[in-house]
């Protein structure tokens, strides 16, 4: 099967220093790829670059980005390298239709992923509608997804502010998998959770992705988590380069 993301020799810099330098990774369908490294190593930046989201000036210096499962030959960063913010904005617009459909993103804090002004059910509904062919019975689909992540149907009526940390993470995971993406990018999903809950959430994430045949790009700085679940590991140095 073709890889979902193939990123080669990524280098992104500000006017003062390199934020990431020489990072390469490949994410395969149905597999867990972990991006590990200490804080400030550029894990989130690398994941965002893999989604076509770059807003650093001058930004992309080197790098090749391919989505082989979509188009094996197209280098999405070809017109962006060395061309600064305007080219990065163009890339952002070009890849917009892929975000939330081809790949979804669960950000570091569930509070950023969940919209506090909408119930979990309404947010799931929006996510499900991003599918190529959304089901007619949205209510039962919402109930099924909530059950998949270990929550009851009543959570659909809850506003995110009324959820505990663990439930919010599960809700964020449900929203990430609801569009049936080929790849889920999870940015430190264990942040802010106690060790028991951390393990449960990560295992749930892996199970749900594998059940649906989706790839998982897991960003983490917990070596024990990564050792246990990852099929491939990409390590970043503190300076932002691949180890």
């Amino acid at each position: 099967m073709s890889a979902l993301i193939a990123l080669e020799d990524l280098a992104v810099r500000t006017s003062r220093r390199f934020l990431v330098d020489g990072v390469s990774m490949t994410v395969q369908p149905g597999k867990v790829t972990a991006l590990v490294g200490p804080s400030g190593a550029g894990k989130s930046l690398t994941a965002r670059a893999a989604m076509g989201v770059l807003d650093v000036d001058p930004g992309l210096v080197r790098g090749i980005l391919r989505y082989p499962a979509l188009d094996p030959d197209k280098d999405w960063m070809a017109a962006v390298r060395g061309n600064g913010m305007p080219a990065q904005r163009t890339l952002l617009a070009e890849t917009r239709h892929l975000r939330g459909a081809y790949f979804t993103y669960a950000p570091q804090a569930a509070s950023s992923a969940l919209n506090p002004g909408r119930t979990v059910g309404r947010q799931l509904e929006l996510a499900i509608r991003r599918r190529d062919e959304p089901p007619e019975d949205l209510g039962s689909e919402i109930a099924r997804i909530l059950m998949d992540v270990g929550m009851g149907v009543d959570v659909a009526r809850a506003l995110p502010g009324s959820l505990s940390g663990g439930m919010a993470q599960r809700a964020a995971l449900a929203i990430a998998v609801a569009p049936l993406p080929r790849l889920v990018i999870a940015d430190e999903p264990e942040t802010g959770l106690d060790p028991v809950l951390r393990r449960a959430v990560v295992e749930l994430l892996v199970r749900v992705c594998k059940d649906r045949g989706a790839g998982l790009l897991l960003i983490s700085h917990h070596e024990d988590t990564v050792e246990r679940i990852a099929d491939d590991v990409v390590r970043l140095r503190p300076t932002g380069g691949a180890a």
Partner: peptide
Amino acid sequence: LGGSRFVEALRAHGYSATRIYLVH
């Protein structure tokens, strides 16, 4: 909401800037 972080998260979900600011 997380200010600009919230906007970043929505952008990563594939929403356009207009939709993020006006709708969300």
